[in-house]
Design a protein around this nucleic acid. Structure first.
Lengths: 193, 193
DNA sequence: GTCTATAATTCGATAGAC
DNA sequence: GTCTATCGAATTATAGAC
């Protein structure tokens, strides 16, 4: 992990490992867990399929390595309270368009239990922690985070997975203007009657 | 289709066909398209796997028959305008809890192109048609329907597929009180700023 | 480190007896 | 209509030569 912990080897085929991970993310994102084969991933990375097994042990291990993900949520305390929803939705849109790892995770989570578990972990830990700074009681905090996740993941599902035409065609800034108030209310509002 | 169109046969093994469809919906909903096998579906229905092929031709044909779905949306013109969001979210929650077909379709749509196409059709045709009664221009109508779909499918994805704990634990009526205002604004509101 | 060969399963689909 | 038997293909994973 850390760059200069142990100079065991002068770095060997780290480039190969990186190429495998890149190809794996692409395939998992495009085809889902079951249809993405080790053979296809190896072909994309222009290496032998057995190398994938050697480096990552199994298909599950490869996915676990490829689906490592950090939402990189900003500190919500540093955001003007009135702009919380807009900041969040802009952050997620940028994070999604720029890194296909989250799409791979989203698609795989539908059929692979391990991927679903990781999805739960990411949103339970990272998103709930970010919401927790407002300091309401834990149950309400978890509920707010869950509601935010439902709209964020629904946006991703309709735009990147199912590709509903209106959700694909709508420009990001228009999506922001519609969805920001929703997140704002989930974060700071109260349920209606 | 119609019950008494042609008395060709005094009805043979229609019960078998129905048992197959029921088992298929369960398996597709629980495992997704790829992991749900014809053998497992046949075992659940307590019939021979070759019967599935005989009746439905292929796995794709079986899925197409099992994933037939009607949202049964109410006429939104008959709903008090202020209650549109609440009526819609209650309708979807009831539709989802009572029929696993939509869960099967949702899970399969992540990895199977045909299922995704069917999902697009259902929401583009049925939901857009229901929203169209308000008679704004077609582009805006499609956009409103897409936004509604994003929140509805996000709720289903987090509650029934990924099973985020706060979304599973929250009682339906509390979900309604949070989500109804969101749908209300997507249907009748204007984008912020 | 890299590759060939193959083991061990599993699946969708077909052929054909009864 | 129903079932047995099986084909052919594809997959993950392993063993071992070089």
């Amino acid at each position: 992990m850390t760059a200069s912990a142990q100079p065991t080897h002068p770095r060997r085929s780290d480039a190969t490992r990186a190429a495998i991970l890149r190809a794996a993310r692409e395939r998992f994102a495009a085809d889902g867990y079951e249809r993405a084969t080790i053979r296809a991933i190896a072909a994309d990375a222009q290496i032998d399929p057995s190398m994938v097994m050697r480096y990552y042990g199994s298909k599950e291990g490869l996915f676990a390595a490829a689906a490592e993900f950090d939402l990189r949520l900003p500190d919500l305390n540093a955001v003007p309270p009135a702009h919380l929803g807009a900041v969040l939705i802009r952050h997620f849109l940028a994070r999604w368009e720029g890194d296909e790892t989250l799409v791979a995770l989203l698609r795989a989570a539908s059929t692979n239990p391990g991927a679903a578990e990781r999805m739960r972990g990411i949103f339970a830990d990272q998103l709930t922690a970010a919401v927790a700074v407002f300091g309401t009681d834990p149950a309400m905090t978890a509920r707010r985070a869950g509601l935010v996740a439902s709209q964020i993941l629904g946006l991703a599902f309709t735009r990147y997975i199912v590709r509903l035409p209106p959700m694909v065609d709508t420009p990001p800034e228009e999506l922001v203007s519609w969805i920001a108030p929703t997140l704002q209310r989930y974060l700071t509002g109260m349920p209606a009657s």
